[in-house]
């Protein structure tokens, strides 16, 4: 195996500005799980002004930020990142976008006053501001194939309502929590190699099967489809603890 082939690169979009709610756990999880498979894993920071090396990225991660920080990355995303990001995805790179990052990859975000901020339209979703904030644990029955267990767990905290167009399909259906918009029962989206979601937690540490799904998908474009199974008992025990929260307790309901 050549050195380059053994390399695994995570591109972290705006690590300084779009890293609220501990989304860094997703980066750590991707890197460790790649390392445990003997890959030479590294993360590159794609902050404002940076676009170097985006063509070598296996998985992009785009987290959530506060309103002020989101406004600060907005111009850079459109002017500097959009083109290389689209090119990388067209070549099989994978993207995981959470919360604010998820919204910015869609067609637009519409404020309560009706003002529209266009996103980069990488995924067929649109978001509108909502009044009530959705906050709490989420359990999702995932609709993507080949992941075991078939559930995803996380914590949501958002006021945006995201609606999927025909080009995107939901990541799953909510069993507990509100998901994309609190009305149609969907959570997140999948469109080709792009996964968008509202789930924090961090998401990937308690959903190692989703982490592996992303890694496998990213590596498959390089002809490396097989991943050695790992002992995920600690991760899945934490996963199971959140699943319990979706069970009505005795005496309730």
């Amino acid at each position: 195996m050549t050195k380059k082939k053994n390399r695994f690169t995570v591109g972290w979009l705006y690590p300084d500005l779009m890293n609220i709610y501990g989304d860094r756990g997703n980066i750590l999880t991707l890197l460790k799980r790649a390392e445990w498979r003997g890959l030479d894993a590294r993360a590159i920071d794609l902050g404002r002004g940076a676009a170097h090396g985006m063509e070598d990225v296996d998985i992009f991660f785009f987290g959530g930020g506060q309103d002020r920080e989101q406004a600060l990355v907005y111009d850079d995303l459109i002017e500097i990142k959009q083109e290389p990001l689209e090119a990388a995805v067209a070549h099989g790179s994978v993207v995981l976008a959470v919360c604010g990052g998820y919204q910015l990859l869609g067609h637009y975000y519409q404020t309560a006053e009706g003002e529209r901020f266009p996103g980069i339209g990488l995924i067929d979703v649109r978001t509108e501001a909502g009044k009530k904030r959705f906050i709490g644990d989420v359990v999702v029955d995932a609709t993507i194939e080949g992941i075991d267990p078939s559930t995803l767990v996380g914590f949501e905290n958002h006021s945006g309502r995201t609606f999927l167009g025909a080009g995107a399909r939901p990541l799953g259906r909510v069993r507990l929590g509100s998901g994309n918009n609190g009305s149609d029962g969907t959570e997140g989206c999948v469109q080709g190699g792009v996964v968008g979601t509202y789930l924090h937690g961090s998401l990937l540490p308690k959903n190692p099967h989703l982490a592996d799904y992303l890694i496998r998908r990213a590596l498959s474009r390089r002809g490396m489809a097989e991943l050695v199974p790992l002992d995920d008992s600690i991760e899945l025990a934490a996963h199971a603890k959140i699943l319990q929260r979706a069970q009505p307790r005795a005496g309730e309901r």
């Binding site: 501990g22 860094r24 756990g25 914590f155």
Partner: peptide
């Protein structure tokens, strides 16, 4: 606080 995401920071 019911969100424990912060432990990843």
């Amino acid at each position: 606080g019911t969100d424990v995401s912060w432990i990843w920071d």
